[in-house]
Amino acid sequence: MKKIIVALSLSVFWVACNDNNNANQEQKKDEVKEQEVKKDFKADFDILNAMPDPIEIVDLVKSTGIDYDNSLLNKPENTEKYNSEHKMALNMGVYTVDLGYTNLHNKTQDAIKYLDATKKMTNGLKVSQFFDFEKIKSITQEGKDLNQLITTTGIGLDKMRQGLEDEKRGEAITLIVAGGWLEAVYLATQVAEKADRKELKEKIADQKIVITELIKMFEANKTTSKHLTEIYEDFKKINDAFTNIAVKNEEGKEVQVQMSKEDFNKLNQTIKEVRNKIIS
């Protein structure tokens, strides 16, 4: 009897230890796999989360009073061209900004098209589960509550960003953020050509803060793949175009935007070229 009790106790002890060893081995395998994934693209999620939402720029563009112009936007039909993940991610960013632009101008028909384009990109990237597209479409069609529309879309984008972070899809989230930022600045520079508004020029000049961070992230990953090398080189051109541009904000003094006509034209042209390449 005593021998049986000893044997039983030791057996239970052995099983518990063995399970723990197996769990440790599985954990190590997962860690190695995780590290392999992390080596592919180094994303700084803290910096990505600190990036301003492009809706702020689009809201300012709307406030200038310049007429809505859908020829500025990336055609929804262009979704057919985007078959690779990096193209889908960049243009997911582009289309969400275009969607915001159409919504803020209450252009329901266009908004539905851009919602469909955005949805196609989310399907391709496998992130559609973060959005309630039916609800967004319904609010868009009703055309009554703009704030609820922007909030519902914004919550979806927020959840998507968190979801991509949880799945450690750093490249996808970085490209979505980059594409969205580029489209917003593109719209701002196109409108700034027509509307001589100090606030808009200041907002454009302020984007130096954002491009400085984006270029660091792309530089850290430029050798990861051919497309990332290209994206880095394109965004570097934009970064270089910001060289002479600055906003001087001293306490007690009026803000001074340092951006000559030549600087603005160079920036405008560079942004247009890079943006058109991304949507092509």
């Binding site: 803290d46 989360n49 600190a50 990036m51 301003p52 939402d53 809706i55 702020e56 809201d59 704030n147 922007i150 909030t151 914004g154 919550i155 927020d158 200041e202 907002k203 302020d206 803060i209 954002v210 904000n249 803000v255």
Partner: peptide, 30 residues
């Protein structure tokens, strides 16, 4: 946000430990 006329930007789910503050960064515009 609604009654005050604010537009949504970001959300934070806060599940914290009393001993350590949760910190986030965001770019605010003048």
């Amino acid at each position: 946000l609604r009654p005050q006329g604010y537009r949504f930007l970001k959300s934070y789910k806060l599940e914290g430990n009393a001993s350590k503050p949760l910190e986030y960064e965001y770019t605010l515009s003048k």
